[in-house]
Amino acid sequence: MRVSFALGLALALSALAAALVALVWTPYDTSTLAIAEKLQPPSATHWLGTDHFGRDIASLLMAGAKTSIAVALVAVGIGMGAGVPLGLFAAATRGSLADEVVMRGNDLVFAFPSLVIAILITAVFGPSATNAIIAIGIFNIPVFARVTRGGALSLWTLDFIRAAEVAGKGRVRISAEHILPNILNLLIVQGTIQFSLGILAEAGLSYVGLGAQPPTPSWGRMLAEAQTMVTIAPHVAIFPGLAIVLTVLGLNLLGDGLRDYLDPRSRRAA
């Protein structure tokens, strides 16, 4: 278990490091075209080869990490920012009409898969990375609302909440002081899951042209462009895909490891 956690941490940190370094430096400029050097296989000068415009794939992947991570991170932020308060509110007013409305609203958003939301937004506003963020973010809201409500509901039945009520504390205060700290673990774990799903979703949206637009570098779009060349230069398609798989795998392993580490049952034993 510890091995997979370390592996996850290493993979996730490498992706993050690549994205951060890409903010200031990439081995080659990703906006300059060098048609003469197009579709070169991996070599000492271009470690991962070049694409059909002769751009360095390693550099493109670093720049793409920036987009992927930014999109997924902001989308998780949107989901948490709206979903957690909604979930806390629903749990605090459990059984009431307000709870019912929040939960039915959640179900409704669930009926729109993120791709469908993206399609709707794109059809009206046109494709962009921002719209991809909004689409994924909206989809994240009910996910966090549900996790929050579920965790909070089981806490609301416990006697320490009764004790807080006897101490004159209201719902808002109890939610902030007693509920939220006790579901933080759940939220962190769910956060890593949604983060990795966000990276997959961004890649998918960009692949079909609903996400990041040129010249914003993106793993998904690199794959879309590589598709026609996959027979003559497979490396153009393989490396961006590997980048996605390894990043998502790293985040998932990290999430599992965090779950084991943060689980109070396993901690009590330690």
Binding site: A203, G241, I244, N252
Partner: peptide, 21 residues
Amino acid sequence: QVGIALPNFWFAMLLVLTFAL
């Protein structure tokens, strides 16, 4: 774990590369 991390469209390309082409 690996299965979950696979973007299906990329996986599809790999399938085409091996099983079709």
